[in-house]
Design a protein around this nucleic acid. Structure first.
Lengths: 271, 271
DNA sequence: ACCCGTCAATTGTCGGACAAAATGAAGAGC
DNA sequence: GCTCTTCATTTTGTCCGACAATTGACGGGT
């Protein structure tokens, strides 16, 4: 983790030119690094590049700088940069080939449901269309997941949903703890569906939820109380009633989507 | 890239002990590598480790060998091994921390819908439960996707589906070309849904499809002709009839799932 | 006009060295 | 005797420099 190297004598291999260049942008470098505390260097680079790609700053088909040039510009070793590129390639954002270089993949190859890609997309104001698409998928999957959960849920699942519901009511969505409880509720429900692939959609649902609350709180802090909607889903799942669970969840997602789009529209008009 | 290095003088840094160790297992190494032709070294390692993880050979919570030991055992450089680990970490299969090591993550953290993870899962005989779960998700998503496609499809989409259908009828599922046409049909339909997240589920659907045909062809080569089912989906989408498309696709997925499980059951009894 | 070999640019792989982080144990203080 | 601190060790993380493999492009030969 060689972050800083003030005056190393470089015992075996004397590289005289690098020392001055490094100390020059040292402050900028450390500032940028401190933002992501728990992330490693390669993780930070991957995140930065990933955000640039999904935000459209780098367009599909674009050729990234060569590894030597890029790592030199970022003031990091080529190895760290390469590991970052491997991460992006693993998520379908880029493809690299010898002699050609590393180019940004077409959006249809992106692994949009990858939790990291999703978080990078929603790190800044996301595309309206992507938000719509995500809610459309939620509207398809979550009601069915609720129905499955009503059929397969164990007492532990019911208890987890109950405690999440309690947390929502206690903290409200104005606080981080309340928002987390909201996500926990949906995560517990997806988990209760008993389907491994549905469980792996949890992060996507979580991203949509957090953006719902962000918009709502930003424009209309005193909006409708979400607890009753969630309670009716919870009751249906607890009662092992798949049809009611399906219906309640469909209603919940619809309302959440309306809240989100209304807030966005209000904000656009206001601005 | 440096695959073989017979007698390099190693001009600057004389490492006398490595040469003999390398030539020892050279044959095994090259054999293993030739299997995955287009994959790079780090890609091969990631794939191998990934298969070991998703197949349960390495269990969740297990600690992988240290980087020096592992790269030494695989006869590769530590850098290449690290890039492989980064790929696995990017797909949620492992987590590595200093001093602790790299440990296999809990299955709920795996990115099951990642195309690579999916292909690794289905590389060998997959878990029956995973196959069931995947079809359950298909049953949820694909009919709705078909309904959306009926509303949003362009002429290009219709044409793509038509040509895929033609390919299916021409080659039959007994040939690779026919199986590809089947996947192309579903890919074109998902694409026509106009939802970016649904499009990103294409690889998952493709994996399920390929296993359907694998089972069917293995046990019952003269089974039901799938073309009529697909044709009715195609007709409904072309006619812009969402209800009919939904119904036809639900029927198609149901039949595909029955074919798959019947073949599996038949094989188990026969074996 | 087409095929083939050479060239050059870029990624891929290697090896070694050292720094940082985190666990666990040893030691100081109470 | 217990807790808190400190330090030593282990493992991943980062850096550097060199070289091989791959492949698109260019040019020469047929």
């Amino acid at each position: 983790m060689k972050r800083r190297k003030p005056e190393k004598p470089t015992p075996s291999l004397p590289s005289k030119t690098t020392a001055a260049k490094k100390s020059a942008k040292a402050c900028l470098k450390s500032n940028a690094r401190l933002r992501r505390r728990s992330l490693r260097l390669h993780g930070s680079i991957a995140r930065d590049l990933g955000v640039l790609i999904v935000s459209g700053r780098y367009k599909p088909g674009d050729l990234l700088n060569g590894e030597i040039a890029a790592s030199d510009r970022l003031q990091v070793s080529r190895g760290a940069y390469r590991e970052a590129v491997r991460i992006l390639a693993a998520k379908g954002l880029v493809e690299s080939r010898p002699k050609v270089g590393t180019r940004v993949s077409q959006p249809e190859r992106w692994h949009l449901l990858d939790p990291d890609v999703l978080s990078w997309i929603f790190e800044f104001e996301p595309d309206e269309r992507l938000l719509t698409d995500l809610f459309e998928l939620r509207k398809i999957v979550e009601p069915e997941a609720a129905a499955l959960a009503a059929l397969r849920r164990t007492d532990e699942h019911v208890e987890a949903m109950a405690s999440a519901l309690e947390g929502m009511a206690k903290h409200t969505l104005a606080v981080e703890a309340g928002r987390l409880a909201d996500q926990e509720f949906h995560a517990a429900l997806l988990h209760a569906s008993g389907n491994a692939f549905i469980v792996s959609l949890t992060s996507g649902v979580g991203a949509a939820i957090s953006w719902t609350t962000v918009f709502k709180q930003r424009e209309n802090p005193l909006s409708r109380d979400p607890v009753p909607d969630h309670t009716s889903v919870y009751e249906a799942v607890k009662a092992a009633d798949p049809e009611a669970a399906h219906k309640a969840m469909a209603n919940l997602v619809d309302l959440a989507f309306l809240d989100t789009t209304n807030s966005r529209r209000a904000r656009k008009k206001g601005a």
